[in-house]
Simulated scan of single mutants.
Amino acid sequence: MNRLLSNLKNEVEQIKVPEDKLDAAIKRAIKKGDKKKWSWGKKIAFFNSAAVLLVSLLIGSAFVSPAMAEVASKIPYLNQVFQSRDVGTLIHEELKNKGYKIQGIGVMYSPRKTLTIDMKGSEQYIDDVKEEVKQIAKDVLESKGYDAYRIEVNKAVEPDPDPETREEVKNFDQLYKKITKELKSRKLNFVSMGITLKPKTISIEVPDTEARLDEVRKTVHQVLEKEGLKKFSVEIRSVKLEAKQKEDKWAHIVGEIAEGLMAKKEYKVTGISYSLQHEALQITLTTSVQSGDPEAKKHGKKIEQTIQQFLESKEMKDWVEDQRYGIVVYSKDKKKIN
């Protein structure tokens, strides 16, 4: 892998890169390289900065040179996916930079794998730019090797909440900040906080090392009372911090595996899930392959080996650590094929 990155570095050094894109890539690499702590239940990757920089330059754009593409082909596929930004972000940035009025981008896997682009503006405007937008999205997908998605461009549907809900949503951010400030001022530890409007509930997760649950509840109620929001209920849940961190970490890893395998036709993956119990992780995948297909077992093994290669790679060592895991691949008719 070191030789591969050295070759990649040589390729990059011979190609002119716009200064603004280079600076942005360096900042992303440093951000990934510096943060080694859990924050808000999410861990930031800390790969070698140079390696991340090179891969970001290579994969982070919809347009790559044939020379760089050839070098990239030698990097394991899922490692490319993991070290680059998600495809929705890349498409959104590309369209925004070109001045298109984008509301949001999403991916659906059922009943068909579809990438949806919601746009703001009149019906006429959307009709005029639809094909251009589709082509840009297609170019980004192709740059990542994704060929399983169909692309839809739709007019964004603006939510129309009732006046009371609209006002509460408007005040959501301020309420969150005030509760957070008060908890921190009293040195009360919490992991996460969520606010729902129907029913009106403040949900707070605190680490199992925090014994002052009654004080946390009392503090939140005091803020609510001060804000005239007495109708809110408060739910406090104690969580094992280490277990939550591990759960969040694997949610991220499995999410990257899902994006990579479900976005390429060759893998024929239709679904992926995982469970983390009794210190053992199991990743379960479903495919569109029939168990009676003569190539079914071979295909199941290919998927298993692709994931193993990724999880056991040098770049994933700090993420996977010594976690025991198993991989199960099912056919369309729910038979194990690996």
Rank of each mutant, 00 (worst) to 15 (best):
S65D: 10
G106Q: 08
K184R: 13
N7G: 11
L197M: 11
G300E: 05
L285T: 05
L95T: 03
D173G: 13
D208E: 09
I283Q: 05
K314Y: 05
V52E: 11
G292T: 12
E182M: 11
Q14V: 08
K334N: 14
V254T: 01
S233Y: 09
Y330S: 06
E11L: 09
Q80A: 00
Y274W: 06
L213S: 10
A62T: 05
L115G: 07
A25H: 03
V55A: 04
A263G: 08
I59A: 12
M108D: 15
S61Y: 04
K297A: 08
S192H: 07
I102F: 06
L57N: 04
E225C: 10
E93H: 07
L141H: 00
V52K: 08
I195Q: 09
Q308P: 03
K9G: 07
G33F: 11
E19D: 12
K184T: 12
E182H: 13
A25P: 00
V64K: 08
E321F: 00
S61M: 02
E210T: 01
V64W: 02
K27L: 13
S331P: 04
K268Q: 15
P111S: 15
V133G: 02
T201P: 07
K177M: 11
H252I: 04
Q174G: 14
G228F: 14
L115R: 02
W319E: 03
K35Q: 08
G300M: 05
D322G: 02
T219V: 08
N97Y: 02
Q174E: 14
K240M: 03
S73D: 07
F47Y: 07
N7Q: 13
I179L: 08
K170E: 15
K35E: 10
A296H: 00
Y100P: 03
V320P: 05
A156K: 08
K170L: 14
Y77T: 00
I204F: 03
M68D: 03
K334R: 15
S49P: 14
I204Y: 02
K240D: 15
I44F: 01
K297Y: 12
R28Y: 09
K198F: 10
H92S: 14
E93I: 07
I75T: 04
K178H: 13
I136F: 03
S110M: 15
K36F: 02
T196L: 09
I337D: 00
Y109R: 15
K31S: 14
K27H: 12
D34E: 13
N338K: 06
L285D: 04
I59F: 10
R212H: 01
L22M: 12
K42C: 04
A51G: 09
D23S: 14
